[in-house]
Nucleic acid binder design. Structure first.
Lengths: 100, 100
DNA sequence: CATTTTAACTTTGTATCGCAAAGTACTTTT
DNA sequence: AAAAGTACTTTGCGATACAAAGTTAAAATG
């Protein structure tokens, strides 16, 4: 397989996880509600896709209380940032190869 | 969902189909063997992913004999080229938004 | 002529995925 | 006490991905 394809990260082949990482890479803290609204996901779907990113070590969870309400925020890890940036670089490379 | 994500084409969310379209968009004729070798696919996997692209009208099949051997080549359609270029444009847009 | 090979599939079986809906736990608001 | 909010987990089901094996038809080989 050509290198620019093997470089793609399997975990980012999902529209939902791509969207999550896109939010997390530009904003250091994103909470459950923001992600849910922005990506229009059900609670369960959000949780399971986010769990996949956590499992890879790409995302960290922070649980806190805001006032009296529980609040879950997510943050990208250094590893996650690196992996995502590399994935985007591979995409860019593919695009370059196709219409330089 | 943010627009740059809804614009993604579901059929191109697969590494294999992305690879196929990448080959087809730069080379007008690509045959079964070339694709198989380039993407390292089993016959069956190749055929079924290609069938998905055909079903969308993105790819055309051309069967012929080269000498005495049967030969199947694939070619991108105008529709396929358009869809793929739009998909790449959405990816590019995402990348731009993330690190302009 | 019979067997094997080649090309390109199709079928089958299995494992994984994606998603909605429902259920859970704990707390707060009413 | 009951209802609602937050963040899940579980369940169930249809779709997907893949390898492996089976199929078809012609060609090459013995």
């Amino acid at each position: 397989m050509s290198s620019y394809l093997t470089d793609f990260n399997k975990v980012f082949e999902s529209r939902v996880r791509l969207g999550m990482m896109s939010l997390l890479v530009v904003q250091e803290q994103v909470d459950f509600g923001q992600i849910k609204e922005n990506l229009q996901l059900s609670d369960g779907n959000l949780a399971s896709h986010m769990a996949a990113l956590e499992k890879m070590g790409y995302v960290e969870v922070r649980k806190q209380f805001i006032g009296k309400k529980p609040n879950t925020t997510y943050a990208i890890t250094a590893l996650g940032r690196q992996a995502f940036v590399e994935h985007l670089a591979s995409l860019e490379k593919l695009i370059q190869q196709i219409h330089p």
